[in-house]
Amino acid sequence: MSKKKALCMQCREWSTNTKVCEHCGYIISQEIKDDIKREEELKLNPPKPPSKLKKAMEYLRTSKNPLLKVLYYVLMGIWMFYAGIVMLIMYLAASVVG
């Protein structure tokens, strides 16, 4: 059975370790590079905390009180009705243009 080898782009040597070059320590694996890049982006741009409205809606959705759940579904129904009207107006405006 043959072993996999990877070519290091830094030192141009073949390495039996497909993740990190055993000669110069350069990272060969694209998955490891992507993970490092993702971690750096998270350090620079941490995720924003949820807004008060989002927290309130999540509380209503997961509440054990049936009245609060009904309130959640009523609010979501009103929101979907509003979104439907806006989409209909946008569709009509786009169809008039061409």
Rank of each mutant, 00 (worst) to 15 (best):
K4G: 01
K4F: 06
K4D: 01
K4A: 11
K5A: 08
A6K: 13
A6Y: 03
L7N: 07
C8F: 06
M9E: 13
C11T: 09
R12L: 14
E13W: 12
E13C: 09
S15L: 10
S15C: 05
S15E: 09
T16I: 12
N17P: 05
T18P: 06
T18E: 07
K19W: 07
K19R: 06
K19P: 01
V20I: 15
V20Q: 02
V20E: 01
C21L: 10
C21H: 04
E22Y: 00
H23E: 04
H23L: 14
H23R: 03
C24Y: 15
C24Q: 05
Y26Q: 04
Y26M: 01
I27P: 05
I27Y: 15
I28N: 03
S29P: 08
I32R: 09
K33Q: 14
K33P: 08
D34Y: 15
D35P: 00
I36S: 10
I36K: 09
K37C: 02
R38E: 15
E39G: 01
E41L: 13
E41G: 01
L42W: 09
L42R: 10
K43F: 05
K43W: 13
N45M: 08
P46H: 05
P46F: 12
P47Y: 13
P47N: 06
K48V: 12
K48S: 04
P50H: 11
S51G: 04
K52T: 12
K52C: 02
K52S: 06
K52H: 03
L53S: 07
L53C: 02
L53W: 14
L53F: 14
L53P: 01
K54C: 03
K55G: 03
M57D: 02
M57P: 00
E58G: 08
E58T: 08
Y59I: 09
L60M: 14
T62F: 15
T62W: 13
P66R: 12
L67V: 13
K69G: 01
Y72N: 00
Y72K: 00
Y72H: 07
L75A: 15
G77I: 05
F81E: 02
F81T: 06
Y82V: 15
